[in-house]
Nucleic acid binder design. Structure first.
Lengths: 325, 325
DNA sequence: TTTTAGCGATAAATCGTTTTAGTTTCCAGT
DNA sequence: ACTGGAAACTAAAACGATTTATCGCTAAAA
């Protein structure tokens, strides 16, 4: 089964493999009308299906690209991936999505495996611990695009959001509404978006002439987050607003709020920095900072595609503005 | 760049390609201690990375499988896909996810492309129009597993939910609560889950001795759904409960409810048949029938893996029970 | 001393394409 | 009739691994 090869087709049609190959690559100028017909008939008769693996080996292109996502549980990642898939679908390029799970080792392994599989390029949501690896790829001229997180001092394509500025605007907005005690909930400050969002928070407070209370900056892994929030809310100066630095933090905060039976909108204002699906169905008055995930994915895909095509890229760094809703 | 091949390693180490190959495949018994060292050193020195494409060509295995999803916008699909990816990750098998977008032509093209790429197997959320294709694959002995939708009269592996029974229970539950006018909102009845869910609905009404009012069965594509619901709600006997047959219908219904400012829980009860992310954050009293998506994906992956390994499968059809929450 | 056995290593065929460098055919133009 | 050259087609060498059959060698068995 499934063993009919180009040689079989050639024999059946009474021509050489080369001609069949030409046919498959639609270079019809190189053959006469009747041979073309014969080949068509032979393919039909034998039910021949070309083997792309063999072709890839020769052509050194696989028509596959890889995405290495820092953590697939973020809705943002899936939106970006979807955009990338949609884009590459136009070119019959398949996409392999890998979830690094915020683990640099896993990330490295994936990068190596995908490259061993000869994917034509990589889109990476980078962790912060494989700089040398990124660098070697870039230096080598291997097509890569980085998304969501900054990779310092690397002359590579990247697509990110204006984390600091968006957060700044959001916090300013809260301050204008009269909030003075604003908590900032975030996972450990290991990657650039979190750091940049905190920068925006601090800058806003400073510009508004408010002092920065370190107690209000709740930095913890998800499992400990609720507990830390509990501590903060048991203290004297309860916050009147919380900024959740991403989707996962948001979920933890929401659980916390439900447990404590805090009334959103009345007692507490909440802002999240991330795209949350179905958020418009929630009745609670929550504000969101949403990234233009689809556009970012599309841009990343374009940048990768151009690299694969060997074009050189004029503008490598793209910063997309987020929007407060 | 990146052109260092096995031959280079062999030359560097002063051995033959064969030995290097043995080394790479960890068949150390076939070589002496010192040669092993030399090869290790040579690989290290040259920064050799094996080319899996070449290996795949010879071995006729690619360590890749494909998933063809009917429609990626369903959260259920992504959950199942995730489970499949998690499973295959254990075996270093990569997964390519393709979105057929409910279009049989697209589905067919994907199946052919993935097979041309020599993926080792396929997990398919089948549309209802490629029976011959499915059949030929199954007959050929090519590893396939069907998910979510039934493929009649095909002796192939499949993993589905008990659509009829779960719907029956949910509707019965509504009836027990006193509802008599229950609407059933659904997309066109083209695929088995929708048909089976409707069956459950009808059976429940019949068993409860209620008559089936065809006006309450709102069958329409998503764009027309709101409009049709509007018609129904303008009529004399407004329903007091709605059963949304899947996630997309649910979204349309929710929009409708919001626009009409209908109060969920008081004026109207709502049940959805699908996994909705973040549903626990909604305050509205909605019931859900959730599929054990992760388990289903895992089972599908297992079934596929066993087929790929050439084992024969004792039990091919799996029906997972859904749960009303 | 000869045979046997097994270890360590290798040459060469193979997988199914693409592509280069020809070769043959055929016909128009001189 | 001969030539030049396009048109039509082909043989064979890649591509980078795996795998089979085999070989030389040494040490143990006969």
């Amino acid at each position: 089964m499934e063993k009919v090869t180009m040689a079989d087709v050639a024999k059946e049609a009474g021509v050489s493999k080369s001609t069949v190959s030409q046919f498959l690559n639609k270079r019809y100028e190189y053959m006469g009308e009747k041979t073309r017909r014969k080949i068509e008939a032979a393919i039909e008769k034998l039910g021949y299906q070309p083997n792309y693996i063999a072709r890839s080996l020769k052509q050194k292109r696989t028509s596959m690209v890889g995405i290495i996502v820092a953590n697939i549980v973020h809705h943002f990642s899936t939106e970006v991936s979807r955009a990338i898939e949609d884009f590459f679908h136009m070119y019959d390029v398949h996409v392999i999505v890998c979830n690094a799970d915020d683990d640099p080792k896993k990330e490295k392994r994936y990068i190596e495996m995908l490259r061993a599989k000869q994917v034509d390029g990589l889109i990476i949501f980078p962790s912060e611990h494989n700089h040398e690896l990124y660098e070697s790829m870039v230096k080598e001229g291997y097509p890569v695009v980085f998304v969501d997180r900054k990779v310092e001092s690397l002359d590579a394509c990247s697509v990110i959001t204006d984390n600091t500025e968006s957060t700044y605007r959001a916090i300013m907005n809260l301050i204008e509404k009269g909030h003075r005690n604003i908590a900032f909930a975030v996972q450990p400050l290991t990657v650039s978006p979190r750091i940049d969002r905190l920068k925006g928070y601090k800058k806003a407070l400073k510009d508004a002439g408010l002092e920065i209370n370190p107690d209000y900056i709740v930095e913890a892994d998800i499992p400990e987050l609720k507990w830390k929030l509990g501590q903060l809310f048991s203290s004297a100066k309860k916050p009147t607003a919380i900024f959740a630095a991403n989707e996962r933090v948001f979920l933890a905060v929401m659980e916390f709020i439900k447990e404590r039976e805090i009334k959103l909108g009345k007692e507490m204002e909440l802002i999240v920095f991330d795209n949350i699906p179905f958020v418009h169905l929630l009745e609670a008055p929550i504000s969101y900072i949403i990234h233009p995930a689809y556009e970012m994915g599309k841009k990343a895909a374009e940048l990768l595609y151009e690299q694969i095509q060997g074009e050189d890229i004029a503008e490598k760094k793209f910063i997309f503005p987020s929007r407060l809703v």
